[in-house]
Design a protein around this nucleic acid. Structure first.
Lengths: 111, 111
DNA sequence: TTTATATATTGCAATATTACGATTAATATA
DNA sequence: TATATTAATCGTAATATTGCAATATATAAA
């Protein structure tokens, strides 16, 4: 049906999937890399950097904001975006946990 | 247009986004967690575990396989799936890199 | 060989995503 | 106040994803 059966899964599973979904587009990865490299993080700079229309960039920024991966601060007529270290750290921890479990259990793997 | 402008981004950006996309569904997170917990990793067990039709599970497994996140081994009439430690480790490293960069640069953040 | 079991594939309907032009909203400046 | 600048929102077209019933495929067992 093209709709996800959210009710069938745990909150944790849904939240993790939502985070991954926000990261699941090369433009959004590019935005994150841009924000990593640049101290100044004005929205217009991202529009200049990427070959996408302003409306499209704005939409991608909105998704990153919804996932709480970035934070926007109004600076006069411009908006300054930056990465939310806390959420990236949490995501990092979760993936670390999975990977470490995987490495530890490696001996009992069946294929 | 609903199609991603893949050509506009680097190989690394596209590959990372593809990995995240494969992880961007609660059912696929649930499958990964199931494979983490269970030594036996028969496809049928996953179908019993999750409230989705067999065809749907099969589709999700296919996406995880395409992303190389899981490996399937034929065992008679059944198929034994397990997580691909190598790819999880690579993903873990990439996210570690981003997070560490973020923590280090924290002093120069603009918002 | 027939039958049962396990998984993949196909076809389709419902919904979501991506992209952009046009417009709107809000602030700064002349 | 009028105008320019910056970013968000709206509307729409094209494409992708999710989910399932039905069917196909492949192997094991009788």
């Amino acid at each position: 049906m093209g709709i996800t059966k959210t009710d069938s899964f745990t909150t944790n599973q849904n939240e993790l999937a939502t985070l991954f979904k926000a990261l699941a587009h090369p433009a959004r990865i590019a935005i994150i890399e841009f924000l990593l490299k640049n101290e100044k993080c004005i929205c217009g700079d991202i529009v200049d950097e990427l070959p996408l229309a302003q409306a499209t960039i704005s939409q991608h920024l909105k998704e990153l904001k919804n996932a709480n991966l970035i934070i926007g601060t109004i600076e006069g007529t411009a908006i300054c975006y930056c990465l939310n270290q806390e959420v990236f750290s949490e995501l990092n921890n979760k993936i670390n946990l999975i990977t470490n479990q995987l490495i530890t259990k490696n001996n009992s793997k069946c294929c």
